[in-house]
């Protein structure tokens, strides 16, 4: 297992995603002799996980069962331990496309935070790309580096513990793309420019507040960035269900021709039509953040 390569069988040291039900999944670090408690009972790693195929059903001690899934950045995003507010898959997908990331891309990112986006970037730029990620919070930087090692992607990433607004990304003239998710991105715009290739590239900044966006756009324009565009992507989830709509009873219709061969209809008051449809969840995230993209021209 690795976050950038599929494998069929679960091995000692892997990170597996245990799928309990539609709402809950947990990441599990697979270790010989270890056990994981779930609401359906115990999972014994040596017998239940190691050597089993990813995607198989595991019966727990209480007779309940779970599925064990191969980790992907998307499953990691919904199961990872939060150390900060994180980016979710909808924004990540947009960022990945609009930054034109692909295998071989060199990317700079700050802050690393909980590593939700980092894993997605690593998946996309492997096997020949590289991620330079900067996190000014020492513990978070260390934890991220540790996670990358556990997930077997550490060869693709360099974690730096410094302040991006003051010290930049620690590299110059190498990046195809830069991503900023910090409180004052406008202070890091010139560092972003310095980190990027002279031939140009793409930059993205994620900010929850419009004032941050305004200052960032101004800084981008000042630094000569082009094609500046701000957008927001909202996810809507549709719950599939069958609904039944009762039909009103208008009483007997005297004008209706009673046909002799008419079969017995459902008794009035019970007639209804059922149909498959979708309903929106009662509450949905109405805002995550604004995504501002720009192109650095050749310098």
């Amino acid at each position: 297992m690795s976050f950038v390569e599929y494998s069929d069988l679960i091995q000692d040291g892997d990170v597996a995603i245990v799928y309990l039900n539609h709402e809950s999944m947990v990441p599990v670090k697979v270790q010989q002799g270890a056990q994981t408690q779930t609401r359906y009972g115990v999972i014994r790693h040596s017998t239940d996980l190691i050597g089993q195929r990813y995607g198989s059903k595991v019966t727990c001690s209480k007779g309940g069962w779970v599925y064990v899934l191969h980790p992907t950045p998307e499953l990691w995003t919904v199961t990872l331990p939060h150390r900060t507010q994180i980016l979710y898959t909808t924004d990540i997908a947009t960022i990945t496309m609009m930054l034109e990331l692909k295998p071989g891309s060199i990317v700079c990112e700050s802050g690393t935070g909980s590593g939700s986006l980092s894993h997605a970037i690593l998946r996309t730029i492997a096997p020949t790309g590289h991620l330079h990620t900067v996190e000014f919070h020492q513990q978070r930087a260390e934890k991220a580096a540790e996670e990358f090692k556990e997930h077997r992607v550490d060869h693709l990433v360099t974690v730096r513990n410094q302040d991006v607004c003051k010290e930049g990304f620690g590299v110059t003239g190498v990046a195809d793309a830069v991503f900023l998710d910090i409180p004052s991105p406008w202070e890091a715009v010139r560092h972003a420019k310095a980190a990027m290739k002279k031939q140009g590239g793409r930059v993205c900044s994620f900010s929850p507040c419009i004032e941050q966006v305004q200052r960032t756009c101004e800084a981008l324009a000042d630094q000569g960035f082009e094609e500046i565009s701000t957008l927001e992507v909202l996810l809507r989830v549709h719950d599939v269900r069958t609904v039944s709509l009762p039909l009103p009873d208008f009483g007997p219709d005297p004008s209706a021709q009673t046909q002799p061969d008419s079969t017995e209809k459902t008794p009035p008051g019970q007639a209804s039509v059922s149909l498959k449809t979708t309903t929106p969840p009662r509450e949905i995230p109405g805002h995550t953040g604004y995504l501002t993209f720009a192109t650095k021209p050749r310098t």
């Binding site: 927001e232 992507v233 549709h238 979708t278």
Partner: peptide, 15 residues
């Protein structure tokens, strides 16, 4: 597992 039926809204801003 993990079935989801979704769509996305895209909104552009003039800044």
């Amino acid at each position: 597992v993990n079935l989801r039926l979704t769509d996305t809204w895209l909104r552009h801003y003039q800044v």
